[in-house]
Design a protein around this nucleic acid. Structure first.
Lengths: 109, 109
DNA sequence: CAGCATCCACGTCGATACTG
DNA sequence: CAGTATCGACGTGGATGCTG
């Protein structure tokens, strides 16, 4: 991705700005898991086994850069890293909840 | 994509079922445009010029197959095709509205 | 106008192996 | 445990030209 300055970038449809940060392949899934509480890397990975560690790391890094997710490292052995929603991430809670509910409704129909 | 039977497919996180149908690169943008009213193919294309006709067609077809979008063909010359939300598509309106608002808030912050 | 068919460059993503 | 590094296959998606 080249330049992505959200301030200068032009959008014909405002929702494109939203997709820019949560449009990644696994991002909404990650956010849905984190809205239930802080989680460690391996824990996230267990919930989404079809995402490789590489993918998971990549998506988490981007979410962190965009200010939606917090990353806390505990320098102990074995290493421990925890992920959680930032305030920005929390502001998506309503949307995430609705998306989850919509999915459930679609499965059980 | 191979088998995608939503009834038999297992999801660790229910939102995956949602992403299965609206996770495509341009689907949410299309749905956001259609929630404002019926639109023709060319009209949609004008609102999202960075999506090729091929891409737009592909995404519309998938949305149609998943029952979110209606396709009406008027056999006149020149040909006229209109797209609109189905009832299933309408059930996403709240989510789409919130996503748009969230995007606008992020742009103007 | 609203597509479809074809070709092909490019980037994404998985697999594997290694590290602090 | 939580990653990083590297390689290479594959699929996505752009460009172009044609059609009902």
């Amino acid at each position: 991705m080249e330049e992505c300055d959200i301030q200068t970038k032009q959008y014909n449809v405002p929702v494109e700005a939203t997709l820019e940060v949560i449009g990644g392949k696994w991002k909404v899934v990650i956010l849905c898991l984190l809205k239930e509480g802080t989680k460690r890397f391996g824990e996230l990975h267990r919930y989404m086994p079809s995402a490789s560690k590489k993918m998971l790391t990549q998506q988490l890094r981007e979410l962190e850069e965009d200010g939606l997710v917090n990353r806390s490292v505990y320098h102990q052995v074995p290493l421990k890293v925890e992920y959680s929603l930032t305030e920005q991430g929390e502001s998506l809670r309503t949307i995430l909840n609705l998306m989850c509910e919509w999915g459930e409704a679609r499965i059980h129909k």
